[in-house]
């Protein structure tokens, strides 16, 4: 459906024109393929991740924005955080159960920045080892259980 591309172009325009602090889209990645975006994320000042740089990959299906995007950390710096697995998968409810077509790449980035910023202790999820060993490559194929919103 062309409505997915139309919507992604609008989002790209908005995100390029007024990017939230510490978020910028890798234009080169998108020029190759509008359905896969690379987004650079800076650890926020005053947070445990200050000075660190991260990369997120967004993959969009034909049903976007009805289907949530597939979002994960990639590259050689995966943030050490209780909701981020060492393979880059993120446990965040808006990426599955609480996704809404009124959300966007920008709102997902802001949620991830806020999730990182509210972290008080850098550690991996308690089930990291078994999850990384048995999970699907696509984090959307995991049935997440959302334990808390505090970190």
């Amino acid at each position: 459906m062309a409505s997915m591309e139309k919507r992604l172009h609008k989002e790209l325009q908005a995100l390029t024109k007024e990017p939230p602090r510490g978020v910028h889209v890798d234009q080169e990645s998108i020029s190759r393929n509008i359905t896969e975006w690379l987004v650079h994320l800076d650890g926020a000042e005053g947070s445990l991740y200050n000075g660190e740089k991260f990369q997120l990959v967004f993959k969009f299906s034909q049903s976007y924005p009805f289907d949530s995007p597939q979002v994960m950390f990639v590259g050689n710096n995966i943030p050490v955080h209780p909701h981020v697995y060492s393979n880059g998968h993120i446990c965040l409810s808006i990426l599955t159960d609480d996704w809404s077509p009124a959300l966007s790449v920008t709102s997902v980035c802001l949620s991830i920045v806020s999730m990182l910023s509210s972290c008080t202790e850098k550690k991996r999820p308690p089930d990291n080892a078994i999850y990384v060993k048995t999970c699907s490559k696509n984090p959307k194929k995991t049935r997440w259980y959302y334990h808390d919103d505090d970190v």
């Binding site: 409505s3 139309k6 919507r7 609008k10 989002e11 325009q13 908005a14 924005p65 077509p101 009124a102 959300l103 966007s104 920008t106 709102s107």
Partner: peptide, 10 residues
């Protein structure tokens, strides 16, 4: 506060 680009298609 809803961003225009996410609601206008609907």
């Amino acid at each position: 506060g809803f961003p225009e680009f996410t609601i206008e298609d609907f």
